[in-house]
């Protein structure tokens, strides 16, 4: 474990916590009387969260952590896997099933057919992988899928007029975690002999590059102290 990877895991954890906080805010909103302005904004405007991206991430974790009970790495590793699995599936459940939260989900805007991402990633994983075994192919599939899983969310943000802070921070943290992982891979390449994982490195690089324009608008909105807005 190195500082880059720990920082990456903590950033990833933060992104999940921000999303859970946002869902909690929406839930607690419904109990209050209506005049509360925050509630009005939250419940009237769409939450800006893409269910498609959340479903893709649940699939990413389900296919990546198949070895959670067979290969024990460390207590930290197992606990983090359980947190990511538990949070991703419960977020999908909230947006799909929870009577309040699902009202803030705008399915007319979140129209990305994520099936078109799953199939190519699966085919690619069958062709390009480190070892042609069931677990390894699904693990590689989870890497390719994670690289593109943010697309429905980024497209939804372009369509969302006012992106609220929590959503912007959620996407930023999600992009930052993989950028920190790239530093971790560079560090491990120079400190561990024979540590070479081209598939992981390239997917991680593609994933981070997909956030490039979001990062640009995110930082310029911070610098100019204006609301985050993505060009359509």
């Amino acid at each position: 474990m190195n500082i880059f990877r720990l920082a990456g895991d903590m950033t990833h954890l933060m992104s999940v916590l921000v999303l859970l906080l946002k869902i909690h805010t929406i839930k607690s909103c419904a109990g209050k009387s209506y005049p509360c302005s925050l509630c009005f904004i939250l419940l009237e405007s769409s939450s800006g969260i893409s269910l498609k991206t959340q479903e893709l991430y649940a699939l990413v974790f389900a296919t990546r952590y198949l070895d959670i009970f067979t290969d024990f790495i460390s207590v930290y590793n197992t606990i983090m896997k359980l947190i990511f699995l538990g949070s991703s599936f419960s977020i999908v459940w909230y947006i799909r099933r929870h009577k309040i939260v699902r009202r803030s989900y705008d399915k007319d805007q979140d129209t990305f057919r994520h099936f078109f991402l799953v199939l190519p990633c699966l085919l690619l994983a069958l062709i390009i992988n480190e070892k042609f075994t069931f677990k390894e192919v699904l693990w590689t599939f989870s890497l390719y899928l994670e690289a593109v899983a943010i697309l429905p969310q980024l497209i939804l943000l372009q369509r969302t007029r006012n992106i609220d802070n929590l959503t912007g921070q959620y996407v930023f943290l999600l992009g930052a975690y993989r950028a920190l992982y790239i530093l971790n891979w560079i560090y491990r390449y120079f400190t561990e002999p024979h540590y070479v994982h081209w598939i992981t490195w390239i997917s991680g690089l593609v994933q981070t590059l997909l956030y490039a324009d979001f990062f640009y608008y995110y930082f310029s909105s911070l610098k100019n102290n204006v609301k985050l807005k993505l060009p359509a």
Binding site: R5, R64, D67, D71, I73, N77, M80, E130, K131
Partner: peptide, 10 residues
């Protein structure tokens, strides 16, 4: 035999 390279990253 050495067990297959377990993926130690999340």
């Amino acid at each position: 035999i050495e067990d297959e390279a377990a993926h130690d990253e999340l």
